[in-house]
Computed example of a mutant assay.
Amino acid sequence: MTRVAIVTGASSGIGQSAAIQLAQRGAGVILTYHGNESGARDTVATIEKDGGVAVALKLDVGRSATFPAFRDQVVAALRDNWQRDTFDHLVNNAGFGQSAAFEETTEEMFDGLMQALLKGPYFLTQTLLPLLVDGGGIVNVASNSATFAGMESGYSAYGTMKGGLIVLSRYLAKELSGRGIRVNSISPGATRTRIGGNAFELYPEVIPEIAARVALGRLGEPDDIGMVIATLLGEEGRWITAQDIEVSGGYNL
């Protein structure tokens, strides 16, 4: 039976890489997008070009009221494409980046980050959990902004939400262990994605300064992270749970 993974926010960057890497390892993929439908189509096309099967569904992880309807779409996609009523892996990756000095962080900004980065993964996982097989796996994409090494001024709200996601991952690992479900988080460092309004493409002059702070001497690429996600969900990760793995090339080492 073909394994099936759900990857949120897979129209670009880390999510796109994770979806493709999982497909290359034989999994079918249900991927989500919010505003970037063309990117989602690109992800599906890349997977299909290599002989895989992928379905793109629209989802706003900041609107938990839409999750039951999304679950119904997942049920239909599983039935129509894989003749299944369950899936094997969940990657909570969707979100956005936003920075502001602590004194300038508004409640609106705080609530928006909380809805997408913490409440969203919490209740989306809860909504989809009845469809997740026993022995399945979950990876939550956090950030090294929640660690000492990755702390930078301006990310108090963003880092707080990602820190909460790391703690949530540990609790899920504990509570779901009876079903054999493994739950881990990963904390990427600076990675060349569209986060922060596509900042790295708009302001390439910042890249050398960031690379100089990375022990391995460069900015992270989406595949550096996507391959770790696929590995954690594969047989190689079968004895790993309740861990947060920093994937940063040694940022501020």
Rank of each mutant, 00 (worst) to 15 (best):
Pro204Cys: 14
Gly217Glu: 12
Ile210Glu: 12
Glu201Ile: 03
Pro208Tyr: 15
Ile229Cys: 05
Pro222Ala: 01
Leu202Asp: 01
Ala199Glu: 06
Ile225Ala: 02
Phe200Gly: 10
Glu235Phe: 00
Ile207Asp: 05
Gly220Asp: 03
Ile210Lys: 09
Ile210Gln: 04
Glu201Phe: 03
Val228Ser: 12
Leu216Trp: 05
Leu216Glu: 10
Phe200Lys: 00
Phe200Trp: 08
Gly237Arg: 01
Gly197Met: 09
Gly234Met: 01
Glu201Pro: 06
Arg194Thr: 09
Gly226Thr: 06
Glu221Ala: 10
Gly234His: 00
Arg194Trp: 07
Arg213Glu: 10
Arg213Tyr: 04
Ile195Met: 09
Gly196Ala: 05
Leu216Lys: 12
Pro204Gly: 12
Val214Pro: 13
Leu216Cys: 12
Ala211Tyr: 11
Ile195Phe: 07
Leu219Val: 12
Ile207Thr: 06
Leu202Val: 13
Leu232His: 07
Met227Ser: 13
Pro204Thr: 13
Leu232Val: 02
Arg192Val: 03
Thr193Val: 08
Val228Pro: 05
Asp223Val: 11
Ile225Met: 04
Ile207Met: 09
Leu233Gln: 11
Thr193Arg: 04
Val206Ile: 15
Leu216Arg: 10
Val206Ser: 04
Ala199Thr: 14
Ile210Asn: 06
Thr231Ser: 08
Thr231Met: 08
Gly196His: 00
Gly237Thr: 01
Gly217Met: 14
Ile229Phe: 06
Leu216Thr: 15
Ala230Glu: 01
Asp223Gln: 09
Glu221Leu: 08
Thr193Ser: 05
Leu202Cys: 06
Arg213Pro: 09
Ala215Leu: 07
Thr193Cys: 04
Pro208Asp: 07
Arg238Gly: 00
Arg194Met: 07
Glu236Met: 03
Gly220Val: 11
Arg238Met: 01
Asp224Ile: 02
Pro222Ile: 03
Gly197Cys: 03
Ala199Val: 15
Ile229Gly: 06
Pro208His: 14
Val214Ser: 11
Gly196Ser: 05
Asn198Glu: 09
Pro208Cys: 11
Gly237Pro: 02
Asn198Gln: 06
Thr231Phe: 10
Gly196Trp: 06
Ile210Met: 13
Glu236Trp: 00
Leu233Ile: 12
Ile195Gln: 04
Ala212Ile: 05
Glu221Met: 12
Arg238Ser: 01
Tyr203Gly: 08
Glu236Val: 00
Gly196Val: 04
Ile210Arg: 09
Ala211Trp: 03
Pro204Met: 13
Arg238Ala: 01
Ala215Phe: 07
Gly217Arg: 13
Leu219Glu: 09
Ile225Arg: 01
Arg238Asn: 01
Gly237Phe: 02
Arg213Thr: 02
Arg194Lys: 07
Arg213Ser: 11
Asp224Phe: 11
Leu219Thr: 07
Glu236Tyr: 01
Gly226Phe: 07
Ala215Thr: 09
Ala211His: 14
Val206Tyr: 11
Arg213Trp: 10
Met227Val: 15
Glu221Ile: 05
Glu209Gly: 10
Pro222Val: 08
Asp224Thr: 08
Ile229Ser: 02
Leu202Met: 13
Glu235Gly: 00
Leu216Ala: 12
Val214Lys: 09
Ala212His: 11
Glu235Ser: 00
Gly220Gln: 05
Trp239Asn: 13
Val214Asp: 06
Ala212Phe: 08
Arg238Ile: 00
Gly197Ala: 05
Ala199Lys: 14
Ala215Glu: 08
Ala211Gln: 12
Glu209Asp: 15
Glu209Tyr: 06
Gly220Trp: 08
Asn198Thr: 07
Gly197Pro: 04
Ile229Arg: 00
Glu235Tyr: 01
Glu235Trp: 00
Leu202Pro: 05
Glu235Asn: 00
